[in-house]
Nucleic acid binder design. Structure first.
Lengths: 219, 219, 219, 219
DNA sequence: GGCTAACCGAGACGGTACGTCGTGTCTTCCC
DNA sequence: GGGAAGACACGACGTACCGTCTCGGTTAGCC
């Protein structure tokens, strides 16, 4: 009748002796242990099973220790995510549609395989009722969009995109698509389909080599 | 993170006598009362304060009555949302970009002004840790995308879109954009910017009046 | 602590069509079905699993039908017990200690094997907080005691018991012992031990063939 | 059958501020408050109205706090009972029949006057559908029987009882008698009648001053 | 032979309690 | 003063059963 605790309490794998205070300052070992535990809990039990209690149990830490350094779930999640995201560098193939296909494909793939999607999805969820997380997410969106906008800008400079197009808009469409796939749990996608979508975006913003009215009819 | 309780128990406003069973069938009065209560709780206390208990208290209903008809929080939220959004009928202007601008603009506006944005955001959050809601949201996304895909299909039939384009892809881009704006708390948007984005989508899928190579190799 | 439900819904074994009303009077079939169901539920799931709901499910009867004819759990239990108890007749061996050993042994054995002990234990439990059941139990105790007192009286008439002994007291000791064993879940007992106990009772009440001071010291 | 609620929420009488944790160990104030609340609820609303919820409300304690220290209703009831019964010390009068008369008389009297009879009855009822309580009651029975068996043993040592008699049997008869009186709601008893019964038990186990065949065949 | 009355099944309803989980705060003891 | 530990009040979770109610359908007895 008791709770299923068997996931967290098992596998301390290394240390059996609890960490102690190292004096009147933050113990980096403890911080590390908590962040690791948070990540593991998230990956194994998902956002639904992600609780301060579970993290504390797993990290062999006291709850007050967590609350001392983080303001709550959202705060902790954000730091976990920041730690976990690798910094992809993407090659410039000279073709924006290919660049985007590569980028979004890699992103979805990463979310699919590493269960890191779980982490990010949790943050998005948290952001829906936590002001701090919400701001962080909005900022992060802009950051990612602007990163992609950089690709688009380069494409624009080499003439792939029409000069009057804001590269940010192109970027937003691509990033929105990816994020949406994530939180509607539809990260599976074929490369062909993905390329088709990215092409729509790029073509829609493309420089016209012939006289194509940018909109058929001005209403 | 805990919810304020002082809001629900006050305000019975009308009836004090509890509703009774009306036989071996669902009581529409009860259903109505529960949905109303759910909406009110959500608006007053937000997603954080939204609990089945609070709804039951407010509706003067038994918890089992709620669980009899809805599978949980997410299910209830979804129905509240469906009830709250009016059923817009969108005119067919003959120009898909305009149709989409109108549609997405109305949608974002609706989320901005009414509290329905909050409701839907709550659903999205719920979907991240509740399987049932997740499925419902995925279904709902497909439903909305297909509704928009209908517009795109009509445009395709009248020659606005290239015949080899899947209208669903066009629709997904538009809907993803809107949803993303919602859950990144960026529902504010100028009409011009919105139109520019919708045009990128539509033009990207547009029938070419001439053979324009938009990507180096058509595989 | 809650009862398993998987037992009742299975096995309707015979009738699938529900019984109908036979007019403005009690349907004996229904009564029979409810009492049978009550007994079965009690035997299979014990007092813990005995609920009006379970009985109604099992009997394919409506709850109000049960409440129409019985005032509640205790009422129903009592009728079930009255129906179920066989009327043992015990031979008169000419030796009261043997008679009692036989009687109590049979009783404990019956409770042990038939699970009818379950039923009686449930009634005893119910009697602790239900006035009506309590009275019925008290009456029933007197009834059983007096039945045993009958044996003792015969023994007294043939000179086995001292003439100044109230046979009821002898009977109460024997019956108390048995009932107590039941509700402390200690119905298992060896025949030798049982005989030893019954002998204590009988000897204690026996006619003295020699001058034995009935109590060593009159304080 | 439902319990009245209007009793517990009223009457906070003293403290309004909830007790706090006093560190990583049991708070004796809390324990005290819970036991008191349990006793009060039982006395005011009876076993039917005795619920963990009611106790928690009354004690201004969290339900989990109760479940942390007691395994359930029965466990709590048992401790309340143990607390409520004083620890009588019984004089050794040198006459076992008198000792038992005194003991059982005191016991029945205690059950009659204090509400402790009701408490103990509740425990017995609980034991019929709760495994944990059942074990506890069985243990408690053995404990009480052995306490009485101690008296009998002393009597045996001084020659009052036959050497081949198990004092436990004598004790069981006496305790069974008392318990049975309790749960058949027949605690009223005259001292003479009680003494007569105890004498039967003691005489039945008494050392015979001569070889007196009291039953045809000594096995 | 239609009307009424009561029965019966079904199951919804407002409730209360169950036993578990997580929250964020607290205190104590050890370093 | 940091950190582990865990108790504490609180409140939500989802389920079970309570006893009452209304329904639709049935049958019997009365007018």
């Amino acid at each position: 009748m008791h709770a299923p605790r068997f996931l967290e309490t098992v596998m301390q794998e290394g240390e059996n002796k609890p960490r102690r205070s190292i004096g009147a300052r933050r113990n980096p070992e403890t911080e590390e242990a908590i962040l690791n535990a948070a990540q593991e809990v998230l990956q194994e039990a998902g956002y639904a099973g992600f609780s301060i209690e579970a993290v504390a149990r797993r990290a062999r830490a006291g709850k007050p220790t967590i609350y001392r350094w983080w303001r709550g779930k959202g705060d902790l999640l954000l730091e976990v995510y920041r730690r976990s995201k690798g910094n992809f560098r993407f090659p410039d193939t000279g073709d924006l549609a290919e660049d985007l296909t590569l980028f979004v494909g890699k992103l979805l793939g990463h979310w699919r395989t590493n269960r890191s999607g779980q982490i990010f999805r949790s943050i998005l969820a948290e952001a829906q009722h936590d002001e701090i997380t919400a701001e962080a997410v909005a900022d992060y969106f802009v950051d990612r969009r602007d990163y992609v906008a950089g690709m688009a800008e380069r494409a624009q400079r080499r003439g792939e995109l029409a000069p009057d197009i804001d590269p940010k808009l192109v970027a937003e469409l691509a990033v929105s698509f990816a994020w949406n796939r994530l939180f509607t749990h539809r990260c599976e996608i074929g490369e062909d389909e993905l390329r088709a979508i990215m092409r729509i975006i790029v073509h829609g913003a493309a420089a016209k080599s012939a006289a194509i009215p940018s909109s058929p009819a001005r209403r």
